[in-house]
Write a protein that binds this DNA or RNA. Structure first.
Lengths: 333, 333
DNA sequence: CTGAAAGCGCTTACAG
DNA sequence: CTGAAAGCGCTTACAG
């Protein structure tokens, strides 16, 4: 049988109220009484029922996390950062995905109403934004981990995309590349426009304004990255570098370059964005702009916990710095 | 304010008992009464509090999952399989990691005692086995997703390691390799011994017994895979293939082979185990024995849910088939 | 410093 | 078919 607070109270010869007080370390308890109660707790191995505590207190000490997919290359880092932070605060983490469309969204929404968690972390909400806004207005604390759009309604954490793009440009300029191809992501995403802006501005500053014909929209997939570069090479376009807006597209670009018999980095230098695990293992290894995914998860979790435990107000977005990880695809020096 | 069952009861002109009955679709309710109650529920947007339901019923409709790390290359697939299955059954998934040693293990244990979840899924419990055994004996349903050891006490799901090793051997034999190097994982792991046994038996069957000097223990890391192969090449060992017990070690082996100026697959064919995302992107792309990670997650979740909802007894282990994914590292035909 | 009692929002015998 | 009441295991005014 489960050990309850009543068992502890009986055995310690006090009321449940008193046990509850020592559990919650209120200082109104006599020291020797408290010590006795603590002894009994240890002896019985008593642990409060989280469900009962949650019901009585009106909160669950649990955080929800909604992700589009767990199989994206960088998602593990984000979730790891969140789990670590949430566990350290002695909260639980309830994980949801919304990969099955409407059905999962509805199921998810009802979990919220069921008060299964006190606050919510969301990664890149593309089709759940309306739902999230409604939940947020009803009072659910929400923090976004999101690069793709701007959501003034929510606190969020993101990477320094503009500066990331600029640093990619400065790196390519430093290795002497003046005609870069930009393999951009979908231009409807905020992060894509920012990376592009930063990159463009830095090239202009460097005295080599971008050729508009060498800015091409792609869709973040390896297949499309490969196809776009193949096509441009077939058209005879001239470029000495590729800045891909994510590593997967960069890998596709590298495949197309290799197929065309071009050497990297001698003929074309390639730089990506993300620093997924794969980046260190391509041939040549891929130089890339690193997004601090784990730190982004940690930061988002801390922001949410601050609201939940401290009652802190929403607070400004957190923009975490990127860094260029230099590998062989841009330099063999 | 939160809508409760009392609100619904009042508005529908019935007792809370009746509302609870229609919620739980007991058939003892008059059809028109039930319809009226359902109307009110929709109108109010009422959703039962999961905490209260859990307390009253003595179970949480939540499954716990304990993983060593979320950043391992194949972990995303496993967790995705679990989440999908658990969500479809309208259970929640509470995620834990134990990457911070004793402290996290203790915190985790107390979550169990707190009855935060009804059953537990565990991935490769290396240092938590004692704790898990204790929990299991106290009545917590546990299912393992584990290749590394044999745990007769628990139901588990695993891949067909022996057959996987045998299929690697048959593939290498089919491409004409008779002197393979086996880059084994740590021999204390069950999966390693099984992969080795299957591989050895298939080579013996093929008329080419393995050379014991070409079976080398390594530690599943890329760095060690590289170092081992480098050393063997330096010693002048003669082999025409490498069977690495995981893809990461295979990638290390490929780096060492390339550094030695050997061509793949012409001089040495390489086959790995796992089929992590990276495998399709190495140069040459890596042939490997695929473990169905997502299916393993799904299966484990189903086994656990069967116990939780159907009260089914523990049941036998599930052994899922592997398959050889042929890429360029073993054949350019 | 301590305890009796009400309450959190449900479910479930039990009685009718 | 329906409801009053007790109970799940806690917390928290309130009173002393």
């Amino acid at each position: 049988m489960r050990v309850t607070i009543a068992d502890v109270a009986r055995m310690a010869g006090v009321s449940k109220t008193t046990v509850s007080r020592v559990l919650n370390t209120r200082d109104e308890v006599d020291r020797s009484t408290a010590a006795r109660v603590r002894d009994v707790i240890d002896q019985l191995g008593y642990v409060p029922s989280s469900g009962a505590v949650g019901l009585a207190r009106g909160q669950s000490r649990t955080v929800g996390m909604l992700v589009p997919s767990l199989t994206w290359p960088w998602m593990g880092e984000v979730v790891q950062g969140v789990v670590d932070t949430v566990e350290a605060a002695e909260f639980g983490l309830l994980l949801f995905t919304c990969n099955r469309g409407t059905e999962s969204v509805e199921r998810f929404t009802s979990q919220v109403s069921a008060r299964a968690f006190d606050g919510l972390l969301v990664v890149e909400p593309e089709n759940t934004l309306a739902m999230l806004t409604a939940l947020h207005r009803r009072g659910l604390p929400v923090v976004l981990i999101d690069d793709r759009g701007r959501h003034p309604e929510f606190p969020y954490v993101t990477a320094a995309n503009r500066e990331g793009g600029a640093s990619a440009a400065r790196h390519l300029l430093a290795v002497g590349r003046h005609r870069p191809l930009v393999l951009a992501g979908p231009l409807r995403f905020g992060c894509v426009r920012e990376r592009l802006d930063g990159f463009r501005a830095a090239y202009a500053d460097g005295g080599h304004p971008l050729d508009p014909a060498l800015i091409v929209e792609s869709d973040f997939t390896e297949a499309d990255g490969r196809e776009v570069v193949r096509r441009l090479l077939a058209e005879g376009r001239d470029f000495d570098a590729v800045f891909a807006h994510n590593d997967l597209a960069a890998v596709g670009a590298m495949a197309a370059l290799r197929a065309a018999g071009l050497r990297m980095p001698e003929d074309v230098a390639v730089i990506g964005f993300d620093d997924i695990p794969l980046a260190g293992h391509t041939e040549p290894a891929l130089t890339t702009v690193r997004q601090p995914m784990r730190e982004m998860g940690e930061t988002a979790a801390r922001m949410l916990l601050a609201r939940l435990t401290g009652g802190a107000p929403p607070g400004p977005p957190a923009v975490l710095p990127t860094s260029v990880v230099v590998r062989r695809s841009t330099t063999n020096g």
